[in-house]
Each structure stands twice: as C-alpha cells, then as structure tokens.
Computed example of a mutant assay.
Amino acid sequence: MTFGRLFFCLLFALFSCQNPGDQTFSYQPVRSDKSLRVTDLGESLEVLEVQTRYPISGTPTILRSERHLYLFETDMVTTLYQLDLRGKVLRSLEFEEDGRLPAGYITQVMLRGDQIGIILSGDRVTWLSETLEEVGEEFLPVKAKFHFQGEVGNIAFTNRIADGDWEILTYDSVVRSRALPVDREAYGFYNLTYSQFSQWREGVLFSRAFNDTIYLWEGGEFRPLLHIDLGGRAFPREKLYGVTYPPDFAKVINSPEYSYLYGEVFGLDSQRIMIQLQDESRRKLAMMDFSSRELTIYPGIVDNSVSGVDLGIPQFSKDGILYFGLSGEQIQENIDRLPESFKHRLSDTYDESYFIFLLKVKESG
C-alpha cells in the first residue's frame, strides 16, 4: 500500500468515528449533463464592461476591496488596473522587466484593506496606496507561491517555491503551524490557480490539484473536510512519479480517462461549496450541499438571465458573490445568441473590452 493510500485510509477511519452530524468525509458525485443556470443559483447578476486603453489578453486576476475592483494582467504585458465598482478604469500601473518592481518576479498581488500588495519572489511585499503609490515594504516570514491573509490569520501554500518540507504554513511574525508534507518524489509542478483558498463559515477552505480532498482551516486546525470519491476515474497518484519532461506530464493530466481536482474552491454559503475539477478532459464544477449531502458535477454555469453566455469557471467568491471574467472576444463569439437587451448595453468597441460578471448567490434552503 502506498503512503498516499495509507494516509487516506487513516483519515477515513478517523472521520468515520466522529459524530455523523459533524462532517461526512467521503462522497460519490452525481454527474449532470446540464450546466447550472444563473437563475437557479443566483438571486442577481451584475455585468461590468471594463474599457482599457489596450485590450486585455489572457485571464487577468480579479480582486475586490471595499471601494475598488482590480485587474492584474500578466499575459502580453504586466499591468495593474484599478476600477471603481461600476467597472470604470481609474488608474493603471505597468510593470517593466527592469523596474523597481520587475514584472518577472511578481508572484502574486493581494489586498489588505484598501492597500494592494505586490509580492516579489514569494515573500517581499511592496504595498501601494489607493492612488497606486508605494507606501511601504515588508518581508513575509514564509516564501510561498500563494498567500491568503484573512480574518482567521495568514496561510501560505508554498507550492515548491522554496526547498521546504511542507505545503501549508500558517504565520504571523513567525511560522505557527505546518500541514501537508511535501512529496519530493512526485512531479514538481506549479499549481497555477486563482482560488486555492476561500473564506467559508468561520474558517478557510483549501484545494490542491490531484488531491481529491478539500481541507478546512478552522479554530487553529487544518483538517480534511470533504473527499470526492471519483471511483475508477480518479487520477492515479503514481502517475505523478517518474515524470521529467513537461509535455509528458501534460499528456497524462489531459487524458480523458482521469478526473481530479484542479485546485480551486469557492465558498457559496454556510451549507454549500463549489469546486473546480478536470473531468473527461474538460474543466467542470462540482457543488457540495452539506444540508442535503449531495455532491453534483456540472459542465459549468450558463447565464440565462442577462447575456446568454457560458460563464466558465469563477475566479473567486467573496461575501456570497461569485466573480467571473470574460474577454470581449468571448462575448463577440456569442454575438448571434446574445439577447438584444444585452447587445444594447455594449459599447461600440466591446470586443476590445473585458467583462466582469458578479453573481449574487441565493441562500440555500
């Protein structure tokens, strides 16, 4: 028995002994051939058209503070856009390769109140004010590919950015706890996602690629919350071993015979969470409803209320709102199916714009 299988068996035994009213650890999903509809999931949908000087390429990071939205683009150019809450560009900041904040060294952008932090090399943060001017710098006690700073404290997913022994570290001025030992024999890849952590109830959810388990940081503990039993489609752990050439790894993970978590999780309300996964060579969404104990995999989310387009995968969730991003080209590709009421809202140059969809989720029950 491999260490991974032994570890899961121990976890399952541990959780099966707990009060069934607390958490049930493992669930088999039901697959739906129909996408979730906006009108079934949400109580309202707001669409913002963001008009920038140059079209945004790729998938920018979306952030939201109390008073602003931010887009951080890293594809063709590395630019930070500050927006008002209606999507109007207020300011922008372009990062050069040889500047004080070199584009190639930026590993993450994050918010602290109305300040935005530019993280270089995983641990050096330069803080910018609301006018995008530098106001301070600090060094974090943890070098990590992704930092989450919230009400419950600071959590870091190292993702092998440094030669450490642990995937998860919590910290304040120093490291306080560690979880998920690094498997040094497995293929060393960067798990590039937008929402590995998500605030949920009084804690924080965490999802890691190729690990069919959702974890919860709560009350000073980091523990498994939900295991998705993918049966015969589950990604074989041994496939992560012995790979040395990236194209070979890509071929394995894109095989239609395997399903696995992609490393993104979204808290919806007190009873539901949403998870991104790869299934039959496609990115899909799974929704876990703890009140009904049902786990369902959907092809995606379709907007049947405003635009008629497929919203794809959310970027993040916050305060009961799911945030999606679509390019103007994606909107233009659906021009024949767009409702006239939505077409009238578009600018003349909408195909060069970027669109943010804000879906307010209905409370379950």
Rank of each mutant, 00 (worst) to 15 (best):
L11K: 06
F12Y: 12
P29M: 02
R37L: 14
T39M: 13
L41W: 06
V50L: 07
T52Q: 08
R64F: 05
E73S: 15
T74W: 09
D75F: 14
D75N: 14
M76N: 15
T79G: 04
L80E: 01
R86H: 12
V89E: 02
G104N: 12
M110K: 11
R112Q: 14
R112D: 15
G113Q: 07
G117T: 02
G122M: 05
T126W: 08
T126M: 10
E130Q: 12
E133P: 02
P141Y: 01
K145P: 01
Q149A: 11
E151T: 13
V152T: 15
G153F: 01
N154V: 02
F157W: 07
R160E: 05
I161C: 06
D163K: 09
L169H: 03
R176K: 15
R176D: 08
A179L: 04
A186K: 09
N191S: 14
T193M: 05
Y194T: 13
Q199C: 07
E221W: 07
H227M: 13
R237Q: 14
Y245T: 11
Y245F: 15
P247C: 13
Y258P: 00
V265M: 02
F266W: 02
D269L: 04
D269Q: 03
Q271G: 05
I275A: 01
I275H: 00
I275N: 00
A286H: 00
E294C: 05
T296Q: 01
V302N: 11
S305V: 10
S305A: 11
V309I: 10
I313L: 09
I313S: 00
Q315W: 05
L322N: 01
L322C: 04
G325Y: 07
Q330E: 14
P339S: 03
K343G: 05
Y350H: 06
